[in-house]
Amino acid sequence: MNLSQLTPGAHATVTRISELSSEDVVAHRLRDLGFVAGEPVSLVALGPFGSDPLLVQVGYTRFALRRSEAARVEVQPGKA
């Protein structure tokens, strides 16, 4: 399961970041922003048009991620 499949309000724990290519800048940046294995995340809200982007809380910070970005974050649902 990945982050873009969560429902608003749901909590989960990051298991890994999938890279679409060997030099996936987005995946690298996601890691720098704190999306690393073991980190608790939650889906806070969805954008008004086409439920995109997603408002995601990781650590103490919230980020707006587009669906394609959130789809790279593999998660294990449930509160850590």
Partner: peptide, 9 residues
Amino acid sequence: DEQALMLEI
């Protein structure tokens, strides 16, 4: 296609 948003709120 691959424009990143990743915007801190």
